[in-house]
């Protein structure tokens, strides 16, 4: 299926109103890994919005990306409770293991604040990470 056809299918699954914009963007982001200018234009037309309005929303939220990034991603919690449990001390090793190959994305709290340092890959969560475990998590992606 072409990109346009997939987006049309996503649009068909939602009501044609602005309040459906976030659910639509989530679906597009999940399908392609990004929401680019072409996708913004199709969505804007369908919801009777300007492309600027749609782009404003895409660029506001951290979850939406406007360009593809083929690298696997590891989200590492950088918030206070994970800092209190030593995540900052592990970051250099994680960065070394990631290099250019893996994208390390900061996340501010995964709701596991009593068992940090924590990370998320897709929908899988990882807790009580020490340096070796974090490095092998990054290397395994």
């Amino acid at each position: 299926m072409t990109t346009d056809a997939v987006i049309a299918e996503i649009l068909a699954a939602h009501p044609r109103e602005q309040s459906a914009l976030l659910p639509i963007l989530h679906d597009v982001q999940a399908e392609f890994g990004y929401v680019d200018a072409a996708a913004e234009r199709i969505i804007a037309d369908a919801l009777n919005l300007s492309r600027a309005e749609v782009h404003g929303v895409v660029s506001f939220y951290h979850d939406f990306r406007s360009a593809p990034d083929p690298r696997p991603a590891v989200q590492i919690c950088q918030a206070e409770s994970c800092k209190a449990r030593g995540i900052d001390m592990l970051m250099q090793a994680a960065r070394d293991a990631a290099g250019e190959r893996v994208r390390l994305a900061p996340v501010y709290c995964l709701g596991l604040c009593s068992v940090g340092p924590n990370a998320r890959v897709g929908d899988r969560l990882h807790a009580r990470l020490d340096e070796a475990q974090l490095v092998s998590l990054v290397t395994a992606q």
């Binding site: 602005q18 309040s19 914009l21 976030l22 963007l25 919801l47 939220y61 951290h62 996340v107």
Partner: peptide
């Protein structure tokens, strides 16, 4: 969609409105 400020109630309402 990953925005902390959307926990603020009026920001949350804007987000719900798309």
């Amino acid at each position: 969609a990953g925005a902390y400020v959307c926990g603020e109630e009026t920001s949350l309402l804007n987000s719900l409105e798309g």
